[in-house]
């Protein structure tokens, strides 16, 4: 009997040795444990064994069955481990090779700056308003307290729209390309009563000869707040908040008295040069300061023109040169680079 079992186990071990996969193992399992297996046949003989020996015989058979099973299972584990290792070996690749990248283009640096400005001012509670490029003298000058023959009109060389045959020259209110986004102050106050808190970003035009720092078209952001009790401190506060959000918490800045026809008191504001920190360098033209924009309290004349009670309401306005801030931020030395659309330039902005 034991001999028979030993033979059986020996045979099993031989078969398992050459087994390679699940299919082979399944065959072995049915061969050694299936209905037609020798062990099953032996089991059927139990009736012919004398009753006293039967329990022992049954026990022995079960032991052998378990032994067979565990041998098959452990061989299965071996095969699985082997297959796993094969897979790992097969899938060894050079992981430094490039991945499959979806194509990415680039956003124009002015778009990046525009978004940053919009997000900053939206977070400070401003609405974002759209304007027109083609304006008239009234909105660009008269309503901004810059009447005809005002000296400020000559300073900006304004592009005028040519009168056509059917559109005769309206000498009193000619069409022009706006020279400043301040037109949006007027348009917003014409159409809305305070409280007003808005910024407007757009293109402006001045008849400047193109060079490193001039382009006949450029971009500005206008800001305007009108409400009861708005004061000079509110203006300083909003601009310093902006400067900190844009250039970092530690930025130094200053207000300088200045003149604009449509604000009084008027100011220009500067930030500390971020390259030389005040030592003087080419970026700040040795001054240690960089001008960021103009600002001031809305002139009461402007309120009177647009029909807002200048006794009840006060307001502040400010304007920022977006191209200029973009150039400062990304250290772009020449404004013309912005509009050449050379991909070697554009693709640096992602």
């Amino acid at each position: 009997m034991n001999r028979e079992f030993d033979d059986l186990l020996h045979e099993l071990k031989q078969s398992l040795k050459i087994a390679e996969n699940d299919y082979d193992l399944n065959n072995i399992r049915s061969q050694f444990l299936g209905k037609k297996s020798r062990i099953s046949k032996m089991m059927k003989q139990i009736g012919s064994i004398e009753p006293a020996k039967r329990p022992l015989f049954g026990k022995k058979i079960n032991e052998i069955k378990q032994q067979i099973d565990s041998l098959i299972v452990s061989r299965a584990d071996e095969i699985e481990q082997h297959q796993y290792e094969e897979t790992l070996a097969k899938e060894q690749v050079d992981l430094t090779m490039p991945g499959v990248q979806p194509p990415v283009g680039s956003l124009h640096p002015l778009t990046l700056m525009r978004r940053e400005l919009e997000d900053i001012f939206i977070s400070l509670g401003f609405d974002v308003v759209e304007g027109y490029d083609i304006e008239d003298e009234y909105h660009n000058f008269d309503a901004l307290n810059t009447p005809e023959n005002h000296p400020a009109r000559n300073e900006m060389d304004t592009f005028y729209i040519k009168a056509s045959n059917t559109r005769p020259k309206q000498s009193n209110n000619r069409l022009l390309l706006r020279s400043q986004t301040s037109t949006m102050q007027v348009r917003t106050m014409e159409n809305n009563q305070p409280p007003i808190k808005m910024v407007s970003i757009g293109r402006c035009y001045r008849n400047d000869k193109p060079d490193k720092s001039h382009s006949p078209f450029f971009h500005q952001m206008e800001g305007l707040t009108v409400d009861e009790g708005i004061n000079f401190l509110d203006l300083r506060d909003i601009l310093i908040k902006f400067a900190r959000l844009m250039f970092g918490e530690s930025i130094q800045w200053r207000f300088r008295p200045h003149y604009f026809p449509f604000t009084e008191p008027s100011a220009e504001f500067d930030i500390r040069c971020f390259k030389c920190y005040g030592e003087g360098c080419s970026i700040c033209k040795q001054s240690g300061w960089i001008e960021i924009g103009g600002a001031g309290m809305v002139d009461t004349n402007v309120f009177d023109i647009v029909g807002i009670d200048s006794e009840k309401y006060t307001g502040y306005a400010f304007g920022l040169g977006i191209d200029r801030i973009t150039m400062l931020k990304y250290r772009i030395p020449d404004i013309r680079l912005l509009f050449e659309n050379d991909l070697r330039f554009l693709e640096q902005f992602r």
Partner: peptide, 24 residues
């Protein structure tokens, strides 16, 4: 506001580079 950003972002993420040209 929303759609302008959506359009520019979409094209940016699909391999396009944004150009800004003169109005003239």
């Amino acid at each position: 506001f929303k759609i302008t950003r959506q359009i520019t972002d979409f094209l940016f993420y699909n391999g396009f580079s944004e150009a800004i040209n003169s109005s003239f």
